[in-house]
Amino acid sequence: MSMRLREELEAYLFLLPWILGFLLFLVGPLAASLYFSLADYNILQPPKLVGLANYQTMFADDPLFLKSLRITAIYTFASVPLIVTLGYLVALLLNQKVRGLAVWRTIFYLPAVVSGVAVAVMWVWVFDPDGGIVNNLLRLVGIAGPAWFTDPDWALTTLILTSLWGIGGGMVVYLAGMQGVPTHLYEACELDGGGTWNRFRHVTLPMTTPVIFFNLLIGIIGSWQVFTNAFVITNGGPANATLFYVLFLYRQGWKYHKMGYASALAWVLFFIILIFTIIVFKTSGWVYYESDQADQSK
């Protein structure tokens, strides 16, 4: 009995750093942030409760909020499916017993290793309207390329294009999933007279749906939090064409010192991500779980 109690106490000792962090940097801030979101707060003066006014302002008379919502949603709906599909297709190709698999995998994964400001600087050149490589190549085939990041009609599309550079991150996971498919399933499919298409449709694809699901979810959550590229490459412009949600939130908080409003924005972001997560889970009927895999994840 005392052994049990001892172990019980010891366990909480092991968890002490996490418990402290959980209370100090999660529960506390969550409560505070909920409170600030109902207040007018500029840090200098104490918060003044205003009820739901921040939320009302957002939806009733802040066109920039609605714009940033729309921009981020467009980005999510365009970039995530593209990254998932293209990454999956490349993984399928690499799964065809190609030679030099390690080299290919390195090439495709490498861009996923680097990120941040250095990469953003690189994109500014790649899509430079005059001397950038994309327009230089288009010029070779006689097309006058658009102004990319500096054209309000193209800036968001260009950011979506740059996100495709990271297809390697998901690809490695798909490939690992494909290589984990037991060969007896392929043999069974072949015995039933299944060709390449059937092998893909009835073995590879169903067996890798959990991996696709995981990447889809991570991708959606990540795309709602895009910040660095929007800040460094376009700084929200031109004409607010790339005013991503988190950039909008950052400006409200750290440029205009509207901490109450920014807190309300953060809570709306939380609910958006929550709703997307629930939708993805609720519509996950297409995901195939092998029974032993289900046991493992329990």
Binding site: P29, L30, A32, S263, A266, F270
Partner: peptide, 27 residues
């Protein structure tokens, strides 16, 4: 380790995965 709150606390850990960094950023 065996302790009574193991499962609920682990669920708690996993549920924090869903909370975006930005919600706690301001406080």
């Amino acid at each position: 380790m065996r302790f009574r709150l193991r499962t609920p606390m682990f669920v708690l850990v996993l549920s924090t995965l869903m909370i975006p960094y930005h919600v706690t950023l301001i406080p």
